[in-house]
């Protein structure tokens, strides 16, 4: 950290940059203010320190600055942290378990090895393939130990709930209905899109999504856990030539 006190114009610019980063829709297009501030963050150490410090004070952490914009993560319990109430409020305990499992599943599916976290290549994922991958890896989760209430036990239970759900139920109009795993995966993707962590890739067909740099950085920031490790192992083994 530089010991030189920041001047006020720098503080203002730093606040502006964080403002852009918080507005999920803002894009650092060529020639825009956001882009200029991002470039400054990348190239000017003093400015970077001001921004990082200011973010810390707000209960935020800068996870990275990919080309698509600055990615922030909240400190738990801070003003910017997502709470359970911000999610779909009608989720019961089983829904939440499945939601968590799918989230971990997508992360493991897209980034099986640590090298993947540094690879700026955008991943394409499809709903059906994610579901098949999770289904194929349930055994790995079922074998986890752990006492009642431990993350391992939650993973086991989640795998159990997932296994008991049918893969597909359709509504009268032919869409996927609640209560099947494909719908659950679809809903998690919907949420990721809302978070700016995924985008629909309609040109490559329905049910295809890009995972953005934001998602890559979020997963890379994770300390991992029994479930994530098990699924990443399964995935890395599954695709080894």
């Amino acid at each position: 950290m530089s010991s030189v006190a920041a001047d006020l114009t720098q503080v203002r610019a730093a606040a502006e940059l964080l403002g852009f980063a918080l507005a999920r829709r803002a894009r650092p297009v060529e020639g825009g203010v956001y882009r200029a501030l991002l470039d400054r963050y990348r190239s000017e150490l003093g400015f970077k320190d001001v921004v990082d410090t200011m973010a810390e004070g707000l209960g935020l952490e800068v996870l990275g600055v990919p080309r698509s914009g600055m990615v922030l993560a909240p400190e738990p319990g801070g003003a910017f942290a997502t709470r359970l109430a911000d999610l779909r409020t009608t989720m019961d305990a089983d829904d939440r378990l499945v939601f968590g499992l799918v989230l971990i599943g997508i992360a493991a599916f897209a980034y099986p090895t640590d090298a993947d976290f540094d690879d700026p290549e955008t991943r394409l994922v499809e709903i059906v393939r994610v579901d098949e991958f999770i289904r194929g890896s349930l055994d790995a989760l079922g074998g986890l130990g752990g006492v009642e209430g431990s993350p391992e036990e939650r993973a086991r239970t989640a795998a159990q709930v997932y296994a008991d759900l049918p893969q597909l139920i359709t509504t009268q109009t032919g869409r996927r209905a609640r209560g099947c795993t494909l719908k659950a995966v679809e809903e998690v993707f919907g949420w990721l899109v809302e978070q700016g962590a995924a985008r629909e890739a309609g040109t490559l067909g329905p049910d295809t999504f890009h995972l953005t740099d934001r998602f890559r950085l979020l997963v890379a920031d994770s300390a991992g856990g029994a479930a994530l490790d098990a699924l990443r192992d399964a995935r890395a083994r599954g695709e080894a030539p």
Partner: peptide, 17 residues
């Protein structure tokens, strides 16, 4: 206030016993 997520916190929250 916009809400942001952190991967581990999200999973912990969803999988809270």
């Amino acid at each position: 206030v916009p809400r942001l997520v952190r991967f581990d916190d999200m999973v912990d929250m969803l999988w809270a016993p």
